[in-house]
Design a protein around this nucleic acid. Structure first.
Lengths: 120, 120
DNA sequence: ATCGTATATCGCCGATTTACGATGAAAGAT
DNA sequence: ATCTTTCATCGTAAATCGGCGATATACGAT
């Protein structure tokens, strides 16, 4: 349990483990290169690091790190193969974050019930 | 034109201005505190900095910076009021990013047409 | 056993982020 | 005119990020 405590959880008030997880996924998506990697991964079903390196014009070590970020966020699955490795998109994580986003927007819809809020 | 070039665009291949914009929004969402701020903002329609400070247990200057990040990403609208200020969620940006996310997932759906890909 | 390939990891760096307190500006209150 | 409140900005310290080259590991081929 509390698996996502590995990422410190900052000073989250209580049971917002899920929120921290969402933040982590958003953060992983928050880089142009990683978005491109993700998009490429989706086209290819599963592919190795080298191919991604050829797609993105960056050093192999850099790509490897980006992949690590994606894997740790749960957006990408990793399976060490013979001598290459297989990276593939985790559609579930993507669905999770879409749900989270929808939830956020739904929040706004509910807001309409309560009127404006005084402040200051 | 090329308004989002203000964020360097890294080495994006061509006309992925939109992608960079999406990345920026994701990055803004990629922090637990900002997610909480955003959620609070949605409940309140619009509110001032001070109130958010009381919600999140952080220094006022820190909160102000987080709000700035959200504003620069376009997720939050800013309107200086009398002596306080009004921050409110930009629902349009939220919809934009949801569309982007859906597009990403749609990509995966299309993938089913082409078979597996050899690599290495 | 040795070489070549594909990866992950390490060490390093410059840049950015995240936090804070302090300061100053603007506006309401006394 | 003088507080007080609200807020943005500046300066700073610590941490993290994003990139690289170098190195270590694993494995297939020779």
């Amino acid at each position: 349990m509390k698996d996502c405590s590995r990422y410190d959880l900052e000073t989250l008030p209580a049971g917002d483990c899920e929120e921290a997880r969402a933040a982590r996924i958003y953060a992983a998506l928050g880089h142009g290169v990683r978005l491109r990697i993700l998009r490429h991964l989706m086209q290819q079903d599963a592919c190795c690091c080298k191919e991604i390196v050829s797609t993105v014009d960056l050093a192999q070590s850099t790509v490897s790190q980006h992949l690590k970020v994606l894997v740790q966020a749960g957006l990408v699955d990793y399976r060490p193969e013979r001598q290459s490795s297989r990276y593939s998109v985790n559609a579930h994580a993507l669905a999770t974050i879409r749900t989270h986003l929808s939830g956020l927007e739904h929040f706004a819809a509910e807001r309409n019930r309560s009127a404006s809020h005084k402040c200051g």
